[in-house]
Design a protein around this nucleic acid. Structure first.
Length: 423
RNA sequence: GGCAGGUUGCCCGAGCGGCCAAUGGGAGCGGACUGUAAAUCCGUCGGCUUUGCCUUCGAAGGUUCGAAUCCUUCACCUGCCA
């Protein structure tokens, strides 16, 4: 597989390199041939989210440019926990970590190619860490880590006030050991990760230098933030999960569709494989006519296709068009409407009398968290049945509210839809 | 080890015996305006069988007709002195 010499320029143009070790050395290495690189994912939840997606896609970019991926799942590091500002983590059980590790592995696999001369390899750091003896660990790895420098690391120094366990304090040693292990056994010489990983990345490169006298490279992707500087990747429900069971593909699509104007270009560069001319053209159109939201539409379509596939994305686009079309819902076919509502999220309710109240349905569909909230929403004029605002808090569904004899369209606010299938 | 102070709803932070589900700000949610954007303005913001009831103010006890507010013990945190 030929090496693409424009890779590093492309990554830089996309804004994917927030920090890096010696840039000239990195370029030289990338130009010289297929570089074996690794990126790690700790199983901190049952699914990866938006932040991880940056890394997964970056790995894919590197592979497409001819380099050789080693995707690491942190079966061992997930048992320990990377220190974070919000405080000490709760340890997860071995069973939980194992299950999450498997799920994370399965989420990563579709993005990489496991065939050809630069086929990807999946590794699990549990394999070389679990059986390591404490004595060996302290002698072979620990000896290379001056505590005074560990204490000076940003995350650690911030945590000294609030407290940090020896367990989390030691995390960097494990991750560094991973890099060293992959360097020794597979000739891996490049690691990248999120910018919050920068300290861990450089620690690994340094361990390779100290323990093996080798030369390794690292770079970090930037932390993505919203236009107001706050953290990204949050929806009403929580993180922007990639798992369809934890966040519906419809909600995933809607997230990207609703991205702020000033972020569209940045996100197109980071999260799509569109070429530079394509993205620049989109940005030009977006700047000229932002209200058409061409950037957001393209972004949502591209990213949802990458994560959930083209077929699902088509269905979501049709559903979104139906629900946001502004036309009369009764003008849609029952099939179209039903399909749209199933994408948006729907519940089934047994037919019969009496039909449920709107308050109950708002709770059942998850549009409201409690009956109090449901009542409040109606009182605020934010609840709609079949696109008609509900005025009466005690409103109960009537038989002729049913569209096509079986569907109700419930809406909270401007864009939270849910379907109710009666039957 | 000694002295002083703190722990309040998602977050920050008032309250210091009844009028407290608890001031104010932020986040969130809804409305208006829009482009399913941003900004702005307005409203809302524990739960329920909702003119009332239930559960909340670090934990457990106690005083009192009545406690977030007083007392005791415990846990954790912060300053000052060793």
């Amino acid at each position: 597989m030929p090496i693409d010499p424009t890779l590093l320029d492309d990554l830089e143009w996309r804004g994917l390199i927030a920090h890096s070790t010696d840039r000239d050395a990195l370029r030289e290495a990338l130009d010289a041939g297929s570089v074996r690189f690794y990126v790690g994912f700790d199983p901190t939840a049952a699914s990866l989210h938006m932040g991880h997606l940056v890394q997964v896609l970056t790995a894919k970019r590197l592979q497409q440019a001819g380099h050789t991926p080693f995707a690491l799942v942190g079966g061992a590091t997930g048992m320990i926990g990377d220190p974070r500002d919000s405080g000490e983590r709760t340890l997860n059980s071995l069973d939980t970590v194992k299950e999450w590790t498997d799920r994370v592995r399965r989420q990563i696999e579709p993005f990489l190619s496991f065939e050809g001369p630069n086929a990807a390899t999946m590794v699990n750091n549990y394999d070389w860490t679990a059986s390591l003896s404490t004595i060996d660990f302290l002698r072979d790895v620990g000896k290379h880590f001056p505590v005074n420098r560990m204490l000076a690391r940003d995350v650690v120094s911030r945590r000294l006030e609030s407290g940090i366990s020896y367990t989390e304090f030691s995390y960097v040693l494990l991750q560094s050991m991973d890099f060293l292990h992959l360097y020794r056994d597979f000739g891996v010489t490049l690691q990248f990760g999120g910018s919050d990983q920068w300290g861990n990345l450089t620690a690994g490169a340094e361990l390779i230098r100290r323990a093996a006298g080798g030369k390794a490279h690292a770079f970090a992707t930037p932390l993505l933030t919203k236009a107001d500087g706050t953290k990204y990747g949050k929806t009403e429900g929580g993180a922007l999960w990639l798992d369809a069971d934890m966040l519906s593909p419809y909600a995933f699509y809607q997230f990207w569709l609703n991205v702020e104007d000033e972020k569209v270009g940045e996100l197109l560069r980071v999260f799509t494989f569109l070429s530079r001319p394509e993205i620049e053209e989109l940005e030009a159109q977006h700047t000229e006519k932002p209200f058409l939201r061409i950037g957001q539409r393209t972004l949502a379509e591209q990213v949802t296709t990458l994560v959930h596939g083209a077929e699902e994305t088509e269905r979501i686009k049709e559903a979104s068009a139906a629900l946001f079309g502004g036309g009369d819902l009764r003008g849609l076919s029952v099939q179209t409407l039903g399909a749209a509502l199933r994408e948006a999220g729907s519940v089934k309710v047994a037919a019969g009398t009496p039909l449920p109240s709107v308050v109950d349905l708002l709770v059942d569909t998850g549009l409201a968290k409690s009956k109090g909230e449901a009542r409040r929403t109606i009182g605020e004029g934010g609840a709609y049945l079949n696109n008609d605002r509900i005025e009466d808090v005690d409103r109960v569904v009537a038989a002729d509210d049913l569209i096509g004899g079986s569907w109700l369209v419930l809406r909270r606010g401007k864009k939270n839809f849910a379907g109710v299938e009666v039957g």
